[in-house]
């Protein structure tokens, strides 16, 4: 009998705990209260961008409504983050690396409409970027274009396309180069990609992990990276240690943003969540975007920061690969071209 008491007590403790946990999470979602919490689930390299942007938005929102907004961030590989939201992570807004990852949330959970990308200007991508090479200072291996990455003496660091959005852009940028070089000959393109990925030393799960592998652990001759991530490495870790190389052709990366409507509704954050994303398109927002080395959509602000964004030939996902849904299926789903060309070395 006594043992049963003990058991009941323990069950009560567990129950109490979960109650505490859920009530503390719910308390942040007061509708009319003076303070509001917003959860932004984002991909890896946006840590610095949103740190600065969240502060600016909080000041703006306080001035406009008197409400104190605290934006909480979660960062990781874009695919993995999308997975978490699908599994039940209650993001008010998602700011991921590519539209395919937000499509996945819309298709699998219905928590936002399938036409989410038409809700905000520029296909809901307030900033763009591109894929560049980060090499060690002085470019000792003379890496100037994608073809150099297939050389036997070059070792590459790039994240895993299965989990990282940036890695999928990297892969497609290389594919676009090979496609032009070999005039759409699939066999030759695949041979090129196979050669390139056989030079990959470390396949991290997210872009930031790949960057630290290259910059801090000193592995590899070249990091295939987001332009913004490459600039950040220069600034954080010393301009004398690395340099950026722009390839002859790359891809226009369009990281989209969206409100996860159903989550925002149940959290009572619809208004502030929409205002948050709209603020990205304002002059203040675009300025912060440019300062963090993302290419702003606003033409005059892009021009103002023109020096850090050289003009190179860029293909687009819609124009060249027929959109993310098609590209995802062809290249990255199980049995896609990535699975065909990549064999892990054991």
């Amino acid at each position: 009998m006594k043992k049963i008491n003990l058991f009941i007590v323990s069950i009560l403790i567990v129950g109490l705990l979960s109650a505490c946990g859920s009530s503390s999470a719910a308390s942040g979602s007061g509708n009319s209260s003076k303070s509001v919490h917003l959860l932004n689930v984002s991909y890896d390299p946006t840590r610095e961008l949103y740190k600065e942007f969240n502060q600016a938005f909080a000041t703006y929102w306080k001035g406009k409504t008197g409400q104190t907004v605290t934006v909480q961030q979660s960062h990781g590989g874009s695919g993995a983050q999308s997975r978490s939201v699908i599994d039940g992570l209650k993001a008010d807004v998602v700011t991921l690396a590519l539209s395919g990852d937000i499509d996945a949330i819309a298709n699998k959970t219905g928590r936002l409409p399938k036409n989410w990308q038409q809700k905000l200007p520029d296909h809901s991508t307030p900033y763009t970027s591109t894929i560049v090479f980060l090499v060690r200072a002085g470019n000792p291996k003379h890496i100037n274009d994608w073809s150099d990455l297939t050389r036997k003496d070059v070792s590459i660091v790039t994240p895993n396309p299965k989990t990282s959005g940036g890695a999928r852009w990297n892969y497609l940028a290389a594919w676009a180069y090979a496609d032009q070089k070999y005039h759409h000959n699939q066999t030759q393109i695949k041979a090129f990609m196979k050669q390139l990925y056989s030079n990959v030393k470390v396949l991290d799960s997210g872009a930031r992990g790949a960057t630290t592998t290259f910059t801090q652990r000193g592995i590899g001759d070249v990091l295939i990276a987001w332009e913004n991530e490459a600039y950040l490495s220069l600034n954080e870790l010393g301009k004398n240690k690395f340099q950026i190389v722009y390839p002859s052709i790359s891809i226009l990366t369009e990281p989209p943003v969206a409100v996860v409507d159903q989550n925002a509704k149940s959290n009572g954050t619809e208004k502030v969540a929409n205002a948050y994303l709209n603020y990205l398109y304002t002059d203040q927002g675009q300025e912060i975007i440019a300062k963090n080395y993302y290419r702003p959509r606003n033409k005059s602000i892009l021009q103002k920061y023109g020096k850090q964004f050289p003009n190179i030939k860029l293909v687009t996902i819609d124009g060249y690969f027929g959109g993310w849904a098609k590209a995802q299926k062809e290249h990255f789903d199980d049995g896609g071209t990535f699975d065909q060309i990549y064999q892990p070395k054991n």
């Binding site: 946990g21 699908i86 959970t109 149940s266």
Partner: peptide, 29 residues
């Protein structure tokens, strides 16, 4: 995650009733 997330009946029911176990403190506990 599989048990208390959107994958299972139990998870969906809990989430619908605003009881968040995973991606929250109780899940960590």
């Amino acid at each position: 995650v599989l048990l208390f997330g959107e994958h299972s009946e139990l998870g969906r029911w809990l989430i619908a009733h605003n009881i968040n176990i995973v991606f929250n403190v109780p899940g960590i506990v």
